[in-house]
Amino acid sequence: MQQFFSILGGMGTMATDSFIRILNQRTPAKNDQDYLNYILVNHATVPDRTTYLLDHSKTNFLPTLLEDVEQQNSLKPDFMVMVCNTAHYFYDELNAASDVPFLNMPEETVKEIKHKFPTAKRIGLAATQGTVASGVYQPIIKKAGYTEVDPTPAIQQKINDLIYTSIKEEQGHVDATLYHTILADMVQDMKVDAIILGCTELSLAEEKAPDHNYPVVDSQSTIADRTLELALKLRQERQAK
């Protein structure tokens, strides 16, 4: 196969399934050949990202992902995208190992804030404990000129319950009431103007329970759009030659 991109996924699998579904639904296609060419690496056995980031004595997930990047390099994709926010802790190392452009989910998500909520100033981060504790998003949010607000311990526990108990343990089940409660707590208690969904399980929650009016910026939806834009741009450039 030629003219394709590679998706590093499986962290977790149900969230990756959501990304693929969104990507395909948004692709302007009238027949089979209009859809995008891509390789999905659903590497479900990548060591847990949060476990390592909270305790560096645990298994480091970077070597596993570097192997994935090297495997994809040998296939010569046009670009790579990784659909796990927490794994972007090692973005610089993975990007350096890649022979092709490697999209950055947190950076693209923060850029999306000004388009969706141009007057926003206080940005809440809803994510795994690993993402919050390791600073995957905070420097990018602050560099963009926003005030970054981490979840309170009580809200973080609710986020953990939604990610790990509701979605991961129950194979994609979304507790919509819990999800909406988290958003309400962040807006009302933390006084944020917008909320970054900085975990792809939370993106799955947004896909399945979008019936709310809270100001969310969905990282997975954003990176799906950027992936689609780049893939279509490259296709158009080749067709024009």
Rank of each mutant, 00 (worst) to 15 (best):
M1T: 05
S6T: 10
I7F: 04
L8F: 12
G9E: 03
G10I: 04
G10N: 06
T13K: 07
M14P: 00
A15S: 11
A15F: 05
T16V: 11
S18Y: 12
F19N: 14
L23S: 07
L23A: 09
N24K: 13
Q25A: 09
T27D: 01
T27N: 04
T27Q: 03
P28R: 06
P28K: 05
K30N: 14
Y35H: 15
L36T: 00
L36D: 01
Y38D: 04
V41W: 03
T45E: 11
P47H: 08
D48S: 08
T50C: 08
D55A: 09
H56A: 12
S57R: 15
T59A: 12
T59C: 05
N60T: 12
L62H: 05
P63K: 10
P63F: 07
E67A: 15
V69R: 10
V69K: 09
Q71V: 06
N73G: 08
S74L: 10
L75C: 15
F79T: 07
V81W: 12
V81D: 12
V83Q: 03
N85D: 08
T86Q: 04
T86P: 06
F90Q: 06
Y91T: 13
E93D: 09
E93G: 02
D99G: 10
F102Q: 00
L103H: 06
P106E: 13
E107S: 13
E107H: 13
E108Y: 04
V110E: 08
K111T: 05
E112S: 02
K114H: 12
K114S: 14
H115L: 11
L125H: 02
Q129Y: 06
V132H: 02
V132C: 09
Y137K: 09
Y146D: 14
Y146N: 15
V149C: 07
D150G: 04
P151A: 14
T152F: 07
Q156D: 09
K158I: 06
K158M: 11
I159N: 06
Y164D: 08
S166G: 08
Q171S: 14
Q171G: 07
D175P: 05
A176P: 04
T177F: 04
T181N: 13
L183G: 05
L183V: 01
D185E: 13
M186L: 05
V187P: 03
D189I: 10
D189Y: 10
K191T: 14
V192Q: 09
D193H: 14
A194W: 15
I195C: 02
L197F: 03
E201C: 12
K208D: 02
D211N: 10
D211P: 00
D211C: 00
H212F: 00
Y214G: 01
P215V: 09
P215E: 09
V216E: 01
V216A: 03
V217T: 08
Q220M: 15
S221F: 07
T222W: 12
R226C: 10
E229V: 11
A231H: 04
L232P: 00
R235M: 01
R235L: 01
Q236C: 00
Q236K: 03
K241M: 01
